[in-house]
Design a protein around this nucleic acid. Structure first.
Length: 488
RNA sequence: GGCCGGGUGGCGAAGUGGCCUAACGCGGAGGUCUGCAAAACCUUUAUUUCGUGGGUUCAAAUCCCACCCCGGCCUCCA
């Protein structure tokens, strides 16, 4: 198994070579907590959740760090607008974030540091930059002098002179160069501030990621990820800060995910963003779709490609997810209970097993190739079909190797789990949402009434009941063993 | 203006020199099953075709050139 990943630094696929064998340090830029998260945020979180899940499935020990930006202009503005304390605002949206992530099946990071809890680390780094002559003070602020960092622009492939030529950056009075960025902002009246050698103030945006990643992952680590839009200037600035202050290489692999686009009312395709106001929040979507449907929708495109968002596409993803769970449900009926999934590591220990070659290997090869989740998902669907085929055969009285079916189901759940899919019991998935016990009992009663009608060959009444349930979004499925129901 | 991506069937989306007469999913059509359905299964749904026009090669969706579109970044943004 050799994982290849597309390194934004250098813009090509490279084999993943770790600093320390068996251990991976991963930092992903989290969210600024001043509002609800939208599907664009969901994409980064799901994508890197899968990266972590896969690396762990490969037996690597991953330390995953994902920050919260809990102090910045927009947060202050928003809190003032609402007339509440900053901490009250950020706590509210951190809680909302966690709830969204739980709904999406995104595991918590190992460390979720907050900027406001790392002021000393940031101040220390700024201090080092000043001592090294890479930063300068002006009007109570501290700025980074980008032209003193030799490789500035290397990550994003930008030349300093080109940037300046086409620059639309407003020239700040205290900046020596319009591209210089602020490390420390001097306090203004009515704003929260912290003490520093340069007076009261607060940190610039970029410094937190440098300081916090170094604290939790060391001054060099393996992978840093985030949305494509962070590549410049955020990540460029992070490099300048970190390597400028430590004097040695920092991040080995940069991973950037593509954007979520929305087709606007006028038919234009545009990036989904808070500033454009064209977003669907995760919470809104989770009210209508199971989290795994959103995951399948996101993972069905490669993480670096742009992703168009629409209700129809989400609906298609839902049907796809139903299909996977249907295979699971059918197998469960045959096997009595779903077997405990075997681990990927245990499987790979027996690479000669036919199932490994037929299924697990193609899956892993796809994932090894820069996390090609669409291809990996294809393997899942093919596996689901072989399961359905066996179940169909059994139902027709054919002979099927029970152990083979069991192994396939095992494998389906195990591989799907790497993508954070098929984590529920099928009946829970199909009975989901607003199905409290009373609701379920009511549906069961109607099914019994319909059964009685059918036995009396009163098909008009049976169909009436079925139609009534259909109008509630409930589909019935008759079989020799009885009738089951699902929400669609 | 500079710099990056991308244009594949009705839709989404893999594939980036021969295994591609193009995976997989959604949708459509026909069949099996069913009282009828639903689901599943089977068959089928791009055959000078992978934005357009040239070129390289024994061989190109895949490499090169030109052109046309689309998106992103260059300012906060996942």
């Amino acid at each position: 198994m050799q994982i290849q990943l597309f390194n934004s630094k250098g813009r090509q696929k490279e084999p993943l070579r770790l600093r320390e064998p068996g251990r991976v340090g991963l930092y992903v830029c989290g969210v600024t907590v001043y509002d609800h998260c939208h599907i664009g945020h969901a994409r980064v979180m799901v994508v890197f959740d899968v990266v972590v899940r896969y690396l762990r499935a490969c037996g690597l020990q991953v330390t995953y760090v994902r920050n919260f930006t809990d102090i910045d202009d927009k947060i202050i503005q928003r809190a003032n607008g609402l007339g509440i304390a900053i901490a009250a605002l950020t706590e509210r949206y951190i809680a909302a974030f966690h709830q969204d992530m739980a709904g999406l099946g995104v595991a918590k990071a190992d460390v979720e540091p907050k900027a406001t809890e790392h002021l000393p680390e940031m101040v220390a780094m700024i201090d080092r930059l000043l001592a090294k002559g890479l930063a300068y003070t002006g009007g109570g602020d501290v700025y980074y002098a980008v032209d003193r960092f030799a490789t500035y622009g290397q990550l994003s492939g930008k030349q300093l002179n080109e940037l300046q030529a086409g620059s639309r950056v407003e020239v700040d009075g205290c900046k020596e160069n319009p591209l210089d960025f602020v490390l420390w902002k001097g306090a203004k009246a009515g704003e929260p501030s912290w003490p520093s050698p340069w007076g009261e103030g607060r940190p610039g945006w970029h410094i937190e990621c440098s300081a916090m990643s170094c604290k939790y992952l060391g001054e060099s680590f393996d992978i840093h990820g985030g949305g494509m839009d962070l590549l410049f200037p955020h990540h460029e600035n992070e490099i300048a800060q970190t390597e400028g202050s430590t004097g040695h290489p920092w991040v080995r692999y940069w991973l950037h995910n593509g954007f979520v686009n929305v087709i606007s009312d006028s038919g234009e395709r545009e990036k989904m963003s808070k500033s454009l106001g064209n977003f669907s929040t995760i919470a809104d979507l989770l009210a209508h779709y199971p989290g795994e449907v959103l995951r399948l929708f996101i993972l069905n495109s490669h993480y670096r490609s742009p992703l168009d968002f629409s209700g129809e596409l989400l609906e298609a993803a839902r049907h796809g997810m139903d299909r996977l769970y249907t295979a699971l449900a059918a197998a469960k009926k045959q096997l009595g209970a779903l077997p405990e999934p075997i681990s990927l590591a245990a499987l790979s220990a027996e690479p000669d097993a036919p199932l490994w070659q037929e299924v697990a290997e193609p899956f892993c090869l796809a994932m090894d190739d820069d996390f090609n989740t669409p291809q990996a998902i294809a393997v899942l669907f093919e596996l689901a079909r072989t399961i359905n085929r066996s179940v169909t055969l059994l139902a027709q009285g054919g002979a099927v190797e029970q152990s083979d079916l069991r192994n396939r189901v095992n494998l389906l759940r195990q591989l799907a789990a790497v993508l954070g899919l098929l984590l529920e019991e099928p009946e829970h998935y199909f009975h989901r949402q607003n199905s409290d016990g009373g609701e379920d009992a009511r549906i069961e009663t109607l099914i019994q009434q319909r059964l009685a009608a059918r036995q009396a060959r009163n098909f008009a009444e049976a169909d009436r009941i079925r139609q009534q349930l259909a109008e509630e979004g409930i589909t019935l499925q008759d079989s020799k063993e009885g009738t089951t129901w699902r929400r669609s």
